[in-house]
């Protein structure tokens, strides 16, 4: 029986790491293991919430929204975690961040409790 190939994904911001199966996207691997770190949004390459920059290692990506990852960014390893699969162990930094986007009268964000 063939053992499944897994790679280690390390989040440089927190020092945490988790394993990801070959062919699986790293956001899915993180969620499946009940881990946190990379912000989770649509899980479809559309919202940009899970944006990361790969600092080391090899990977492949599926099509990502150009509204969130430009061609220039793509050449320097910026990608959406929900569309990214490792081909080796990888190190990444988190770029995306959950912004509070619903405005309120004071211009500040609505409290989200």
């Amino acid at each position: 029986m063939q053992t499944e190939m897994t790679f280690e994904v390390r989040i440089l911001d927190t020092g945490e790491s988790f394993p990801c199966r070959a062919g699986e996207n790293i956001l899915k691997a993180m969620e499946r293991l009940g881990r946190v770190g990379i912000p989770v949004g649509c899980r479809g390459g559309g919202c940009g919430v899970c944006k990361v920059q790969i600092r080391g290692g090899r990977f492949t990506t599926q099509r990502m929204s150009r509204a969130h990852v430009s061609e220039a960014e793509e050449t320097v390893g910026v990608a959406l975690a929900c569309r990214l699969s490792p081909m080796s162990d990888i190190d990444l930094k988190i770029v995306g961040r959950m912004q509070k986007k619903m405005a309120c009268a004071t211009g500040a964000s609505q409290p989200v409790t």
Binding site: V40, G41, C42, V49
Partner: peptide, 12 residues
């Protein structure tokens, strides 16, 4: 009875 971050922030 509380808002969900994703519901507020995730749009295309």
């Amino acid at each position: 009875r509380k808002l969900n971050e994703n519901f507020l922030n995730v749009v295309t």
